[in-house]
Design a protein around this nucleic acid. Structure first.
Lengths: 227, 227
DNA sequence: GCAGTTCCTGACGCGTTCTTGACGCGTACC
DNA sequence: GGTACGCGTCAAGAACGCGTCAGGAACTGC
């Protein structure tokens, strides 16, 4: 099921979108301003963002650029303004489509289908082995590979952190990106959180936590999950 | 350069689009009906198709569906009809965007940039070979070309320096530019940093560090990455 | 309201990385 | 042939970032 994040500061339009998209089989989460959007985009990892411009706390194009620094999620903009300059700014900031109000709901969902179609099989690895354990992202479960009955418990923060790393196997994930996606946009410089929780993940997953082979530190840059 | 196939049966609009897109750096090929479109899409391998609905020989949605059976090339539809039903049909047939006439040229090219951006990263050179090693900029990883399991570790400063050089393959990069981009505006004259770190990069990447063939010094000017 | 867990925050030691200085060599220019 | 400049190399101290521990705050379920 496609999970869509709807961002709008008008409650009635938010309500109308929620009802219509839910009826069409989308799973809906909502946000009403820029801060909530950042938060929700990080916490809920939506497959799609529907963004109404004209939020109270931040410029729309600014918000799009900010999101684009750390997530490639498709963004469809809703706006009452039909000037070419507004469209160009939003699209060049990183939006994938721009729909002007008033719009037909049929057209909107057709455009949502069009932008999500490109992502195609966005399937994620169902179970990743790390050392003696296996991480099942979908089931939110970690168990010993040799004895699936024995599980390891991870806290919410540990899960979020691990998930971001596992989504880019072998690739370096920057400190700011990790902090942004796990703790939110206001924690981008709190690198001690990363040290803290990476150490915990290593204690729970690595065979020798003091000599990690899967959760690698790249000093000054970030961390890397090595399959 | 992006190669775009423009499909339109009105010569004047075709001409206007050709002029405008050529001026913006696109390479333009054209077609005037469905049959020409099929052939041109096959022969010219466009990166992008701009398709005007209302062709003489075939229904637009039909043509899109036909193209989609064998090519994933992005398709942006132009149309005089603004009914939701038309948009839905074209988008669901496989179009990536739908622009109604009259439209601003600025908006059109912004939308072209948006749809090509999605495909862009696919054909970017993610891995650059240097001697016996391969540099993967996206993953921030250097490994031996013959044995990807064996990696070479680069520090943050080394990465920043190497990245600047690799972004301009074959071109000379001035000392000041390097210092500026890696260490910041206040270090423009600290050329000993360059000597220091270039030597380290050569030790880690070049087969014979004392006789570099990829990281070349241009005395008095700067350095050059030779692929 | 209570107990247990989870999260936040500060401090400290250690290893790596960065910075800085000095020296020899080759080349270009005088 | 001499000299000055720029480059490569080596070596050292300084600075930074990381892992770790520990205590208190906030949250959760009962």
């Amino acid at each position: 099921m496609t999970r869509v994040l709807i961002v709008d500061d008008e409650p009635q339009l938010l309500r109308a979108l929620r009802i219509n998209l839910t009826a069409r089989g989308y799973q809906v989460v909502t946000a009403a301003d820029g801060a909530q959007t950042q938060r929700a985009a990080a916490d809920e990892h939506p497959d799609l963002v529907v963004l109404d411009l004209g939020l109270p706390d931040i410029d729309g194009a600014e918000l799009i650029r900010d999101l684009r620094t750390w997530t490639p999620v498709p963004i469809v903009v809703l706006s009452g303004r039909s000037d070419a300059i507004d469209k160009v700014e939003a699209l060049d900031a990183g939006a994938d489509d721009y729909v002007t109000k008033p719009f037909s709901m049929e057209e909107l969902v057709a455009r949502l289908r069009a932008v999500t179609r490109r992502l195609g099989p966005a399937d994620e690895p169902p179970a990743v082995p790390i050392g003696a354990h296996t991480v099942d992202l979908a089931a939110r479960r970690v168990y010993r590979t040799d004895d699936p009955a024995r599980t390891v418990h991870l806290t919410r923060t540990e899960w979020q952190l691990l998930e971001v790393l596992l989504r880019s196997p072998g690739k370096l994930v920057g400190q700011r990106q990790l902090l942004q996606q796990v703790w939110g946009p206001t924690y981008r410089d709190e690198t001690q959180y990363l040290r803290q929780y990476l150490a915990q993940l290593r204690r729970k997953l690595e065979a020798d936590p003091s000599r990690p082979v899967h959760l690698i530190t790249e000093p000054g840059m970030g961390y890397r999950f090595q399959p």
